[in-house]
Every structure is written in structure tokens, then in C-alpha cells.
């Protein structure tokens, strides 16, 4: 058996302990060990952003972090956003504004947009676009993703 390391990660408010190989990527830990398959793998090179999750309050590409690096961390995935069936403002806005087509980039997009708005509650379209530089989408041309981000920001300001 390969060497394994015990880790404990708090994912979406629930603590998980497991023994993982040191080389196990965080995204594989989430998808294979915890069965949280909402986080996607789109590339091997940290380019596409489909695997973006939140770790200790900041977004990370979970294909570029080892599971052992998440030991003791708080991780939020797409599955952890909606509370009691209530979508977040960003999720609602993606739905309202057709901010997704095939849905494969969507988890990473929603988590990235959530962070963009947290950091800058009233972003311009240009700022949203700059903030999404690390998230690729091949379906939407980004048009409605930007629209959704601006709408979510406006909704949060209004609310």
C-alpha cells in the first residue's frame, strides 16, 4: 500500500476525516472520496477554473491543491452554497440570466463570481470580466455570465 496521510477537512460545514496519498489532488478527494461531484475537472494545467472551490474564504483551483494542503481547512463547494434549498443571489442570477448552457464550468463560475462580489460589491462589467480571467466557458461567450454577476451584485446591494 502506498503511504497515506490522515487529514480532516471541513467541507460545506461537515467534518470529514480520511487517509489520503500525499499526491491526491484536492479535487479528487472531493469528487472520489467525498462523492461531491459538483466540482468539475476541465484541464490539467490550472487554466480553466471548472474546479474552483473556496478554501478558508478564498477561491482556489482544487486541481492545483493537494488534499493534504486542505488538512484543517474549511472548504465550500457548489453543493454547499444553497442553504435549506434557498439558492444564493449568484445562483439565482445565473438562472435568471441564462448564465450557463452545458453547465460544466458553472460551479467554478458561480464560486468565482461569488468571491468577485464579496470583494467588490458593486463591480463594473469590466471588473467582472477581469475577475473571471481564470474561468473558461465555451458555451456562453461570457455575455450572460457577466450579466448574471452584475445582476447578483445589484440584488445584494438592493437586499
Amino acid at each position: 500500500m502506498p503511504n497515506t496521510v490522515p487529514i480532516t477537512v471541513n467541507v460545506n460545514g461537515r467534518s470529514h476525516s480520511a487517509d489520503v496519498e500525499p499526491r491526491t489532488l484536492l479535487v479528487h478527494f472531493l469528487r472520489e472520496t467525498l462523492n461531491l461531484t459538483g466540482t468539475k475537472i476541465g484541464c490539467d494545467t490550472s487554466q480553466c477554473g471548472a474546479c474552483v472551490v473556496k478554501m478558508n474564504g478564498v477561491t482556489v483551483k482544487s486541481c492545483t491543491a493537494f488534499a493534504v494542503q486542505a488538512d484543517g481547512a474549511d472548504v465550500t463547494t457548489i453543493e454547499g452554497l444553497a442553504q435549506d434549498g434557498n439558492l444564493t443571489a449568484v445562483q439565482e442570477a445565473f438562472w435568471d440570466h441564462h448564465g450557463l448552457q452545458c453547465g460544466y464550468c458553472t460551479a467554478g463560475m458561480i464560486i468565482s463570481v461569488t468571491e468577485i462580489i464579496e470583494r467588490n460589491p458593486n463591480p463594473s462589467a469590466e471588473e467582472v470580466r477581469a475577475g473571471l480571467e481564470g474561468n473558461m466557458c465555451r458555451c456562453t461567450g461570457y455575455n450572460n455570465i457577466v450579466k448574471a454577476a452584475l445582476a447578483a451584485a445589484a440584488a445584494q446591494q438592493g437586499g
Partner: peptide
């Protein structure tokens, strides 16, 4: 109207091939 397929896609509940075990 907004899409009827979206709720599963914006919550991470959709199953793509690699999600299936």
C-alpha cells in the same frame, strides 16, 4: 423563460459521465 434544466446545474447536482460511479 428561464431554463428548466438549470436548477440541477447551478447546485452541482447534475451527473456527467465522470460523476457516475
Amino acid at each position: 423563460i428561464r431554463r428548466r434544466e438549470d436548477p440541477r446545474l447551478i447546485t452541482g447536482q447534475a451527473s456527467y459521465t465522470d460523476d457516475i460511479k
